[in-house]
Design a protein around this nucleic acid. Structure first.
Lengths: 194, 194
DNA sequence: CTTGGTTCTGAACAAATGTTCAGTTAAATC
DNA sequence: GATTTAACTGAACATTTGTTCAGAACCAAG
């Protein structure tokens, strides 16, 4: 046998995904060319096709990996009160998304650039995440811990509010992650009438 | 003199802007071609250049017109209590954005596809709108009507929450505009600790 | 040093892009 | 009916696009 499989590919491969992530987040999928990605990696455009069958898969894989990470990290609500479950979720969402601004940006800005089949897959995962929060609210309402008229709407409102953080929050700003978590948790808690 | 200026252009002109609006909102600026817009209007691509100097201006004009409309319609806070001002703003935002889903979508999804000069113009108007809300919150805090720790953050949170409505609300759904306004106003009111 | 196989280059491909423009069409005025 | 001019066509342009592929370069094992 000769050179073992992926002797360079385990270096170049991640760099390709990383470059695609950066560029897609900054300029948008449709505005980024394969040559641009290749140039950022320091390679010719043709070489990218050792690591992805096509441009679309590059986007899809990035989104899928992100959704897998998110869903795998959602805090387990078992044995926690409704209020604690909600607090866990809010703090988790902020902290998790805080360290992945590019992934988050792509995950909800580039949905329309997915092929219909790929879109269906990602959308299913997105709804799974939302249903986590909806479950918490539903249960809390039943238990009398929350006072929301429509848990579905409250879910949308909370998610939109939390995800919006990424549009303005930058590391090294005047506020720490903990301060942001505290303030948003306060707003969410009062908004659900607790 | 002959044919008066714009004898057709006052028909085709708006149709060009309308087609661009629709397509930009659905597929994104970068993914839409001039030929696609022309085809929707029922005209050849070259004819579009009677109505816009280039593709970028088409996007910029749409965003600018929207921002002008929004800023011109913000309710006047004069002579209203802090609480009423906030309620006015929340209900206005929902109602106004409700009738213009495409414009809203473009206005915050296509910012990165503006040239730097155009971006600066739009961004200035966007911040002007946000500062309306921030003023209301600031004044309300001073008057003791609200209890928010940081009005700047509360501003972002409320705007994100309200703008998020456009991602799920469709006319003819199970909820009326008024019902949505009521529920969001309830959440905002409690979130600012009133 | 030879061999075998992975990784990349560099050129090529057809298709699509934004934009220009000479020329055709058609309507309003005289 | 002749003239004038706005509105549009249709072809052309230089670039850029995603993708393919033969061959060079390179490295590790025998």
């Amino acid at each position: 046998m000769a050179r073992t499989a992926g002797s360079h590919s385990d270096i170049t491969g991640p760099r390709v995904r990383q470059a695609a992530l950066r560029l897609f987040a900054r300029q948008g999928y449709a505005a980024v060319s394969m040559r641009q990605i290749a140039s950022e990696v320091g390679v010719q455009a043709g070489a990218l096709y050792n690591y992805t069958p096509d441009k679309q898969s590059l986007l899809f894989d990035l989104m899928q990996a992100h959704m897998r990470d998110v869903l795998g990290a959602v805090p387990d609500p078992k044995g926690r009160s409704a209020m604690d479950q909600l607090e866990d979720f809010v703090r988790f969402h902020i902290a998790f998304h805080f360290g992945r601004p590019d992934e988050v940006f792509i995950a909800y800005m580039e949905l329309r650039n997915l092929t219909p089949e790929n879109f269906e897959v990602i959308e299913k995962q997105r709804k799974l995440y939302e249903s986590h929060l909806e479950q918490i609210l539903d249960n809390g309402v039943s238990a009398g811990a929350f006072a929301v008229q429509d848990p579905k709407i409250a879910t949308f409102a909370v998610i939109a509010m939390l995800t919006g953080i990424n549009t303005w929050f930058r590391e090294g700003g005047r506020l720490s992650l903990e301060a942001v978590q505290d303030q948003y948790w306060h707003m969410v808690r009062t908004a659900v009438g607790a």
